[in-house]
Simulated assay, not measured.
Amino acid sequence: MGDVPGLWADSESGDPQRVVQYLHGGGYVAGSAASHRRLGGHLARAIGCRVFLVDYSRAPEVPHPGPLNDSMAVYRAVLAAGVGPDRFAVAGDSAGGGLALATLLRARDEGLPQPVAGFALSPWTDLEVLGASVDTNTGADRLITVGTLRSLAATFLADGDPRDPWAAPVHGDYRGLCSLYLQVGGAEILVDDSIRVAESARQSGIDVTVDVVPGMQHVFQLRAGRLAEADEAIGRISAWLRPLMGLDTGID
């Protein structure tokens, strides 16, 4: 899509005219469409749509704004293919969750139509790693550390501004954005990356839902099909998104 590679995840009973653009996690240096293929399939089946898993460029070879440029190319291509904004959503996890939010901010800034919704799983939105949950959940988070995140941020930014909202959407102005759903594990050091974005979005009049799942680790939804909490979490995303995309209302 838009000369950017990726993978399509389709549901046998899904609507091919409704699309989720999905941006994988991996700290902007790892991960791929293939690594998230299974999650994409679970989302496609639960929501009843097509999911395009984007293989965006990664640091250090392509630092910021390279990944965002790729995401925007896909965004424009989806719209150009005839998918209406009311049948389109943008999503991602971890770094890809931050990238999804940055994509929505940049689309607004460039005057492009907003999709009907955006959702992010354990989004990394603060490249300075300053949220209160960094301290309160340090002993509970088994997967990520402050040092690792700061090292990844330095690689991704390549001397860029850590408060650029197109890189660190915790600093974004959310006026005019679509409805948002943020889902995060309660044991993560990144809990506040979602809560702070939600507070900013609400102050801008945006409809935003924050779903903190007690005891869960970073992007636990990757264990869909093997972990009940992951399946239930994807079910809640579907229940929120399907009506917005016209899948539960009889909209043709």
Rank of each mutant, 00 (worst) to 15 (best):
A81G: 15
T138A: 15
R87F: 02
S32Q: 09
P63K: 14
V208M: 10
L99D: 11
G97R: 07
D164M: 13
G40R: 04
A107Q: 06
G48S: 07
A167V: 05
M72N: 00
W8R: 02
P63C: 15
A73L: 09
M1T: 08
A102L: 04
P165Y: 01
L23W: 12
A59R: 12
I47K: 10
W240E: 10
G186I: 01
A77C: 07
R150Y: 11
D252N: 14
D211G: 08
D135R: 13
G6K: 03
L130Q: 11
G40W: 07
R226E: 15
Y75N: 03
V54H: 10
T155L: 15
Q17R: 14
D173R: 10
Q203W: 07
T148D: 14
V116D: 02
I47F: 08
P214T: 03
G118L: 01
T103Q: 01
L244I: 07
A100Y: 00
L152S: 13
P113L: 01
T145E: 02
P65M: 08
V213M: 08
L143P: 01
G84M: 04
L121N: 09
V90C: 04
A80W: 08
Q183W: 05
A239H: 14
P85V: 02
G26A: 13
L7W: 00
R45M: 02
L152N: 14
G41T: 07
V197G: 05
D192I: 03
E61C: 07
L157S: 13
L39G: 10
L112I: 00
V191G: 01
L130H: 05
G176Y: 00
A73R: 14
S238P: 06
L99A: 05
S204D: 14
W166R: 15
A201L: 06
G97V: 09
A100I: 05
E12D: 11
A168K: 04
P85T: 02
I189N: 01
G2S: 13
L53Y: 10
S13L: 10
V210C: 11
G225F: 12
V116I: 08
S200M: 04
P67A: 11
G147P: 00
A89R: 02
G118T: 02
I195T: 14
G118Q: 06
D126V: 08
G185H: 11
M72V: 01
R242F: 15
G131F: 03
H24S: 12
S94C: 12
V29W: 11
V54K: 13
T136G: 03
I237H: 12
L43R: 05
A100W: 00
F88W: 13
D173Y: 00
G139L: 01
S71T: 07
S32T: 14
H24M: 08
G97K: 03
G6M: 04
V184H: 03
P165D: 10
W240P: 09
E229C: 10
L101M: 03
G118M: 01
A120Q: 06
S133I: 00
A33T: 08
P16S: 04
L79Y: 10
R58M: 13
I206R: 14
W124N: 06
L105C: 02
F220D: 07
Q221L: 11
S122F: 08
R45A: 14
G14Y: 03
M72E: 00
S32C: 09
Y174T: 01
L182T: 03
A168R: 05
D126C: 05
D3L: 13
P115R: 01
